[in-house]
Amino acid sequence: MSHVLRLENITMQFGGVVAINDLSMHIDQGEIVALIGPNGAGKTTAFNCITGVYEPTNGAVYFNDQCIVRNQPTGRMKKLYAGDNRTPCEGPRIAMTPDKITKLGIARTFQNIRLFKSQSAFENVLIGMHLRRTSNPFSATFRLNLQEEKQMRQQAMELLEIVGLGAFAYEKATSLPYGQQRRLEIARALATQPRLLLLDEPAAGMNPQETDELGEFIVRIKDDFKLTVFLIEHHMNLVMDISDRIYVIDFGRQIAHGSPAQVQDDPEVIRAYLGEEEA
């Protein structure tokens, strides 16, 4: 069976630091998969490799069996390379830019919220729709795309309603409370019509009640938009509640993988989070 997302032996090395070490994983259609690990384990780096922000040192990423990222150590990196997996990834180098990857159907949110600061919530979502346009600069300037524009505005409004921000559509994005900014980021990501949604700590800074609501919300949009969700999260309750599978990484290496129950009892995971017992 083909996977929605497949990472093959991804290693990301910055200079001498190996941020991700030989990471392989796969995500299937309709799943909610979580990526957890202590601070600095390389979770966001993994996201950045998938979305084309970073180019991994070695390994490949496949989205619906299409290779979107592939690289192997070259030049100076050949000597410096310190990943566990010594076999260089076969095949020509592929490095899609983030905008191309988003166009294929992977959307993301950011750990440190990155909304378009000077614009309203509504405009933020509208910008997310720009990539599905059929108009060219000329027809857009001279308003030959009125139909499309109207449709975009309508859809943007609907998305805002779905994430519960309908009443704040014309508020400046940065004037919204923290939790709502996170929801707005999700709305903006949904506007790009993704098939895979990457959420980078969507519950950061939320209180327990908001976190519970967010969990329900993620499950709901997953079903409504027929999405596959891949999330990084520190709130264990949320992760355990909604995830189908969990990958745990520490120091860039995968240390556990399985259902929430399996992962919870894994001694490696407990060690990574709580530290080793002194003998």
Partner: peptide, 11 residues
Amino acid sequence: DDEIAAEAMGI
């Protein structure tokens, strides 16, 4: 406003 976010939005 934000090049990285803009690119992530497919621009």
